[in-house]
Design a protein around this nucleic acid. Sequence first.
DNA 1: TTGAAAGCGCTAACAA
DNA 2: TTGTTAGCGCTTTCAA
Lengths: 334, 334
Amino acid sequence: MKSTIYDVAKAAGVSIATVSKVVNQTGNISVKTRERVLHIMKELQYQPSVVASALTGKKTSTFGLLISDLANPFFAEVARNLEDQAQAAGYSIVMCSTDNKDDKGLNYISLLQRKQIDGLIVACQFSQWSLLQDSLNANFPVVLFSKDIPSLSMHTVTVDDYRGGYQAIQHLISLGHSRIGVVTEDSPSGDHRVRGAKQAMNDAGIAVNDDWIVKVKSSIEEGCEGAAHVLQRDTRPTALFTCNDLLAVGSMQSAQQSGLRVPEDLSIIGFDDTILSKIVVPRLTTISQPIQEMAKETVQLLLRQSDTPDMPKQKIVFQPQLVEGLSTQPLQAK
Amino acid sequence: MKSTIYDVAKAAGVSIATVSKVVNQTGNISVKTRERVLHIMKELQYQPSVVASALTGKKTSTFGLLISDLANPFFAEVARNLEDQAQAAGYSIVMCSTDNKDDKGLNYISLLQRKQIDGLIVACQFSQWSLLQDSLNANFPVVLFSKDIPSLSMHTVTVDDYRGGYQAIQHLISLGHSRIGVVTEDSPSGDHRVRGAKQAMNDAGIAVNDDWIVKVKSSIEEGCEGAAHVLQRDTRPTALFTCNDLLAVGSMQSAQQSGLRVPEDLSIIGFDDTILSKIVVPRLTTISQPIQEMAKETVQLLLRQSDTPDMPKQKIVFQPQLVEGLSTQPLQAK
DNA sequence: TTGAAAGCGCTAACAA
DNA sequence: TTGTTAGCGCTTTCAA
């Protein structure tokens, strides 16, 4: 049977209060008793129960992570980085894939609250974001990860999606491209990226062709279909900006099916710099997010909220970075 | 403030025992009081505390998952499937990436025990497996996932690695290959797969060339280097069996660097059928594991162990399946 | 059919 | 410096 604080107290000939104090390093305990208690604890392999201490109002040292789909390489990487940062702070993470379904997310939240988690990271989408807000207690620690939802008054850590889109297009333009298509994902981030993309075209005096902009669900298959729509037109773009790597991979497949070579006939630039972009041939040019830094800030933000429940909401925006691969090249003169 | 069982009891004019009974559907409660209590619960948005009920000896409805690296696509997929199955049973999962480090794993286990999880899934490696056994209470529910460790008396769910290796080689042989190299991972599974591979060669009367067998760490980079060792010899194999998809991708890169075309000059067959194998060009021929089924059995096994602590240890072995891609082809006559 | 009360393992005043 | 004790929110006998 597992030993409790009572067992330790009895064996050490002290009260449970004393044991509690040495465990938590609170109060004043003589070196001698501390040593003795510590020794007994080891002997009995005493492990303080997180459950019992949580019941008295202390932390569970657990965060919840609502994520779209753990099997998606981008989110898997996000999860891993968050886990690392949390672990460094003594926390563990309960992973919850919501598939971006509101009800799944809401169910998880309710369950997580019953489990008394100390904070929540939201890295999935909601179709009705207000439901998220409503299901959470006013000062419950939350951070929106990689989602910038203006209607929500919540701490947020994101990459500058707008700027990322802008950079992507800027890169294509610098290579001489002016006929640029866009395959985007139906999400707030996707929208921001596209806005940035359009702005870059405008700033360069390049016409935005709405026929070349398609919005799809985030998957390789849909990316492939979406790109096909654009590529099979009479006049097609010479370069494609896709709002994430999954769509980029799909677009590369579509190009191949259309007999177009990447990058000779079509340049493609993605977003996220996941493992996919690294193994695809040609290596994808893409926009990378500093996931590790973002994860670090996210955990810090969660931690600080526990101490300062009413701290002013803040939004931390990281700058994306262009990673040049082999999927883009200067426009060939015809 | 969150409402407790006392609030509900008071509002409903009953005792907390009664509320507890309607919540847990135990004992005999008149329809009338039940309805009333239920109604009040809704009104007060009462959420029973998992922490408090766990303290009285009930479950936390939480499993721990020790996994090598959540960012690895194969493990991410495993994690996702386990999460789905657990969720269907009302459980959530705490994810712990150990990077196959014993101390990391052990620390997590200790933490998880303090959190009173109801079961543990081990899908990572230990260099000293006995440490795992020692750190766990005798009848604590555990399942080894995709690791077959004979020295450990634990419930196990695996794919038949030996057979998978055998099938891979059989496939290559059926295509006419007889000069076959192997790039494997330093792990028990890897070893099983290689044993199966060698057996298949023996059975076909094909010589096993140990110079063509390299054992590396599981990563794209090491796969690339490992394959290079084999491919840069004076006489090189015409086909390569790699013990997982990461190594396969690395090997494909190595082949490319050596100016070898896949599959014209070199056939490559992988293992796992992850997303990587699907996006790589040419699409990888590989051996797939029925991850979903495996996840399902794993969760069932965990659940049953809670009910029947001393149930006889069992090992469930699933059959792998060949997935034909485009990275293998019949041996070309020279 | 309902309720009183003990207890789960721990924390935190408050006393001593 | 140490100990006593009252909870934390819930489950579960055992009585009523």
